[in-house]
Design a protein around this nucleic acid. Structure first.
Lengths: 221, 221
DNA sequence: ACCTGAACACCGTTCAAGT
DNA sequence: ACCTGAACACCGTTCAAGT
């Protein structure tokens, strides 16, 4: 059991200033205000009042740190989630919460470029989704496929929306610009695009709901 | 029309060594061997036999360059694509080709973090997809939603697979490791995960096909 | 045991100067 | 008109030294 529990066992020297917990908390609070890419270990060190390289006593490298920070950012996605007797509804609620969480704090999207972390929150999300598919009556093989499909879709949606979500209220203006770009294309070359240009970029939540319902309905029946 | 055609009009001085075309070709051939993140303007300059900062005469910044390079990398996704009288089949073929292209050269995945580029290949892909949904009988609003959903899913799938595709044959070993990680979890806390651990990570092409068919069927009927 | 500080090997980008 | 080269303001990471 417990592969690595002794992270800070009682030592005799002066108490350590830092720990994985303290460092992650600091990184998370910094990431609430700036983008994930712009977080440097030097800034983090300054924020903690510590030499920039002190972090290396607790994490192997920046990726290691971002993996753990990303998993922490996932916490709100499963907080307070209680299974009902409608597995399809459970899946929808989890995916909606996951997407909302990812858009609020895109650090967790970095996880996609690294692969599974097998940290706590990620594991719990996997468990809840697999359980729901199994309760819906799917075979083990189909439950696994359904799980991968829903994760791919939910992360893909959050990923494409993230840069816009960061724009806040300027978002509407950006959409207006993009629509007029499409409307200005040569109709001979891009007939369908020009035709629907005015309707491109509907509210992204609505798009996600349609895709999500389509997948859940199609996968669980 | 042609907003900016005069990229290299006949000049009187010595012929320019560089052009957007030449630079993009160089970047693409370098990216065939290394990852997108590891491409530096200094390496690119050396490859071109030119000062590292010469690129700034032709592109505003690195993002500008990567946008155009990314769009070029998309070319194989629509090359030789001819619409049939089965729009659903056209959509499936395009998404499969797009995913294959993205996995072969993940530069284009960078586009997701920037937003639409409105470069040539991206525009063509959008046009083909919107056209197919309209031919399938969807309303303009529904066609737009279908387009967004399929793009989100296809990019999400490619994004999650990309790091593994880069591993090549080591991939099988990685999957084996991950499966045994899940199998080793506490069954009391992760019953579903432990139960299906041996079946996690089926061939990712198969997962994608299931999700893709589910979406296309559900969206076009 | 944990943190510091100098150092290494890099980045993207700007701008005055050359031709 | 286009390219060069020095310079600026950064990076992540290593490692010997301190306490």
């Amino acid at each position: 059991m417990a592969t690595r529990k002794a992270d800070h066992r009682p030592t005799r020297g002066r108490p350590p200033k830092l720990s994985r917990d303290v460092i992650c908390d600091a990184a998370l609070s910094m990431l609430a205000e700036q983008s994930a890419a712009s977080l440097s270990l030097r800034d983090l060190g300054e924020f903690l009042g510590v030499d920039p390289t002190a972090v290396y006593r607790h994490f192997a490298d920046k990726d290691d740190l971002l993996r753990e920070v990303g998993d922490r950012a996932l916490a709100p996605a499963i907080r307070g989630l209680v299974p009902t007797d409608d597995p399809g509804e459970d899946l929808a609620r989890l995916c909606l919460a996951l997407r909302r969480t990812l858009l609020r704090n895109p650090v967790a999207l970095n996880l996609t470029s690294i692969g599974p972390t097998r940290h706590r929150n990620e594991l719990r999300i996997t468990e809840v989704m697999l359980d729901a598919f199994l309760r819906a009556g799917l075979s083990e093989d189909d439950a696994v496929i359904g799980y991968h499909v829903l994760i791919e879709y939910t992360l893909g949606s959050a990923l494409l929306d993230a840069p816009l979500a960061a724009q806040g209220s300027a978002r509407t203006q950006t959409y207006r610009q993009w629509r007029s770009d499409y409307a200005a294309l040569a109709p001979a070359d891009y007939p369908a695009s020009v035709r629907v240009a005015k309707r491109l970029y509907p509210p992204s939540d609505q798009v996600f709901q349609v895709g999500l319902r389509t997948l859940i309905d199609g996968l669980t029946t």
